[in-house]
Amino acid sequence: MIDIENLSKTENYQVPEGYFEQLPGQIMNTIRKERARRRNIIFSSVAAVALLVICSTLVINYKTNEAKEQQKQIAIEASLKSSQLEEQMVDYYSDELAQMDYYNY
């Protein structure tokens, strides 16, 4: 009668020759590649965010300047209109005054 507990408790799995000598190197290579890939992803993400920020700033500046220019233009036009009106009023009242002077004489 054989007792299973008394059998030799050694596992004799067959492993390719030199497997354990090469394994740490293979795994370290995989890890280094993964680290490089992660670094690239991080660098690309940072570059993309920076580019986005720069473009957004340029667009916002452009839009702000455009709005300022429009406001300036409106102000200039308004001031021109008011000065024209002023001139017209001056002309009108000058004529009026001249006529009044004429009648007074």
């Binding site: 596992e11 799995y13 354990f20 394994l23 795994i27 370290m28």
Partner: peptide, 21 residues
Amino acid sequence: EQAFELLLKKYQRTIYYNARR
């Protein structure tokens, strides 16, 4: 990385044989 290489050398057989079983 140096630490991890030491860890691999120490535990690679434990990992492999547990997986293999």
